[in-house]
Amino acid sequence: MPSRARTPRQAGTNRGLAPGAAPEPLVIASLSGTLRVREPGRVVIETGGVGYEVLVPLSTYYRLPALGNQVFLEIRQIVREDALTLYGFSSAVEKRAFDLLTQVQHVGPRHALSILSVLTPAELADAISREDIHKLDAAPGVGPKVAERVVRELRDKIGDLRIAEPPGGPPIRAAARDGSPAIVDDAVSALVNLAYKPVEARRAVDSVLAEEPGADLETIIRKSLAVLLGEK
Rank of each mutant, 00 (worst) to 15 (best):
E94F: 13
L31F: 08
L26T: 05
A66R: 13
G33A: 10
R38Y: 11
P25N: 03
G48L: 09
L58A: 02
L58K: 00
Y87G: 08
A92K: 11
Y52I: 12
R15T: 06
S30E: 08
V37C: 10
L55F: 13
G48A: 10
I75H: 02
N14K: 09
Y87D: 04
Q10T: 05
V93C: 06
F89R: 03
L58W: 00
G12H: 11
E46M: 12
I78N: 02
R63M: 04
P8W: 08
I78L: 11
G88M: 09
L73V: 12
N69M: 15
R38H: 10
E46N: 08
V79R: 01
R6H: 14
A22M: 07
Y52D: 04
R9D: 12
S91A: 08
R38M: 11
L64D: 04
N14D: 14
V71G: 14
P19F: 06
G20S: 01
L35M: 09
S32E: 09
E94T: 09
R38Q: 14
T47I: 10
R9C: 06
F72Y: 11
A66H: 10
S59Y: 05
L58V: 00
G12Y: 11
S91V: 05
Y61S: 00
A83G: 02
Y61T: 00
V56T: 09
R80S: 03
Q10R: 14
V79L: 02
G20H: 00
Y61V: 00
E24P: 03
R9H: 15
G88S: 10
S59V: 03
V54Q: 06
S30Y: 05
